[in-house]
């Protein structure tokens, strides 16, 4: 196995685009190294992006924040600006692993690992996050976070492409977001179901816009428009929340596995979407 730790993104892209065989980009390593140790993957090339200075930066941009690919969960959790703007995204990222893992794990890594159960992804999707990708020859493109994962362990990234950063956009006034996951324990676990909600209120208090995303209930994170529609135009009264929960459950197409059953995930997706909506609503009202 070859290990490279370039100091610029252009070098990183160059190395990756010329490589044959199995390649992996290493940020925090909290997925890649675990997979290597367990024998799930034996890469021919590992490109460590932590030596690229810009990758560690959180920079303000147009009222939002650009988060570098090597920014750890701990770093994000200590950033007052991001926390104030998108608390749900920060909370979701901070749910990954233990305190020790938080010192290494990155939000971008969580996205690119492409697990249907990734905690940060429903929050990123509801926040409307934009992913910045660099490819061979320095070509840059931007796609919504929603379009990165295409299936378990699979992304839309082409050979030689690296995610450089994620833009968490500016947030309109009277907005709030939240992410909740179900795990049997209190920490150190993988979501059995995850639910993210982001919403914006009209000045009169009715819901102007909403996004609802669910994790671990399909092969990819689901953006559930009927669940969002169920609360748009309402003040999140019980009937509206019941409709949101029902729509969330209806959108699920989960599997039975060691972590949960189809029946359980379907029901709990609705329960969590509803609870997350209530938190997001409280945040939007200040």
């Amino acid at each position: 196995m070859r290990y490279e730790a370039p100091s610029t993104i252009d070098q990183a892209v160059e190395i990756l685009s010329q490589a044959d065989g199995i390649t992996r980009v290493l940020a925090g390593g909290t997925d890649v190294i675990v997979q290597m140790r367990s024998g799930m993957v034996e890469p021919d090339l590992v490109v460590d992006i932590k030596r690229i200075d810009a990758m560690h930066e959180i920079t303000p941009e147009d009222g939002g924040f650009r988060v570098g690919a090597a920014v750890s969960g701990a770093q994000l959790g200590e950033h007052d600006g991001v926390k104030a703007l998108w608390p749900g995204v920060v909370e979701a990222t901070e749910l990954i692993g233990s305190t020790q893992v938080q010192g290494r794990a990155t939000m971008v890594g969580n996205l690119c690992n492409a697990s249907p159960a990734a905690d940060s992804v429903p929050a990123l999707v509801t926040a409307g996050a934009i992913v910045s990708i660099v490819g061979p020859g320095g070509a840059r493109r931007e796609i919504p976070a929603y379009e990165v994962t295409t299936g378990p362990g699979k992304t839309s990234l082409e050979k030689g492409e690296i995610v450089e950063s994620i833009l968490l956009p500016a947030r309109p006034a009277r907005s709030g977001d939240a992410y909740l996951r179900f795990i049997p324990r209190t920490e150190m676990d993988i979501a059995v179901v995850g639910a993210g909600v982001a919403l914006t209120l009209h000045p009169d208090g009715t819901c102007a816009e909403a996004k609802v995303a669910l994790g671990a209930v399909a092969e990819v994170v689901l953006l559930v428009e009927p669940a969002a529609s169920a609360i748009v135009g309402t003040r999140l009264e019980d009937e509206a929340l019941d409709a949101l929960a029902a729509a969330a459950s209806a959108a699920c197409r989960p599997i039975d596995d060691k972590r949960g059953t189809i029946e359980f995930r379907t029901k709990v997706a609705g329960v969590l979407a509803r609870r997350a909506a209530v938190i997001a609503h409280d945040r939007a009202r200040g």
Binding site: R185, T186, M188, D189, I190, K258
Partner: peptide, 16 residues
């Protein structure tokens, strides 16, 4: 066995 590790063989953690 489907869960041969401490991730999916769930012993209680301190905060539980």
């Amino acid at each position: 066995m489907q869960n041969a590790g401490f991730l999916d063989y769930r012993v209680p953690v301190c905060s539980d």
